[in-house]
């Protein structure tokens, strides 16, 4: 990804994140979060993770944020009224965040940097020529069949975790129904 695009999406993501924690109105916070996730999806696509980027927009910006907005409107939340800010929690919180950031910069300063190298699609095409000729053909044409490759990995190597996650979603659905049921006792 060109450097200008990288910084455009990164700054969109960070500014969206800052807006989430600074907006008093919860609806504005939720909408800034959509902006933040769009920037994040841009970064994913720049990292050649096309499928993950699309999933990020569909699941987060589409489904999860609609759920948030729905709950905010269902509870009919008003903008937070200004309260006298409590000094100790704010100073403590900012201290934790500052310590984390300093730690992060210190660690990154000692991490060997790695420049991104272009994907070697020809080499991958040779590796896939035996097992899946269709993928190899598209790799040979200079395309990255991201969805095919992700699908192959997820349904072969990660088949059991995938099914467990399916059960998790079922449990979550049942749990939500039970929680939301009006108690009649």
């Amino acid at each position: 990804m060109p450097l200008t695009l990288f910084w455009f999406f990164a700054i969109l993501m960070l500014v969206g994140g800052l807006a989430v924690i600074s907006m008093r109105n919860p609806v504005s916070a939720a909408l800034s979060m959509v902006a933040s996730f769009v920037g994040l999806a841009g970064l994913f696509i720049g990292l050649n993770a096309y499928f993950v980027g699309i999933m990020q927009i569909l699941v987060y910006a589409g489904a999860i944020m609609v759920l948030f907005l729905f709950i905010i409107m269902l509870l009919d939340l008003k903008t937070e009224e200004k309260q006298a800010p409590k000094v100790v929690p704010i100073v403590g919180g900012l201290g934790i965040v500052l310590a984390f950031t300093i730690q992060l910069i210190g660690i990154l300063g000692k991490t060997p940097d790695k420049a991104s190298e272009p994907l070697k699609l020809d080499q991958a095409a040779i590796a896939y020529a035996e097992t899946s000729p269709r993928v190899a053909e598209r790799l040979g044409n200079g395309q990255l069949p991201d969805v095919n490759l992700v699908g192959q990995v997820i349904f072969t190597e990660y088949n059991l975790p995938l099914q467990i996650v399916g059960v998790l979603l079922l449990v979550a659905t049942i749990g939500v129904v039970v929680l939301s049921k009006r108690q009649t006792v």
């Binding site: 990288f6 994040l40 984390f100 420049a115």
Partner: peptide, 19 residues
């Protein structure tokens, strides 16, 4: 092309904002 360092820095900053 952005390097690994910049991605890690940006993601760390996003984590700090969330925290």
């Amino acid at each position: 092309m952005a390097s690994l360092y910049s991605y890690l820095l940006v993601s760390g900053l996003l984590f700090a904002i969330g925290l």
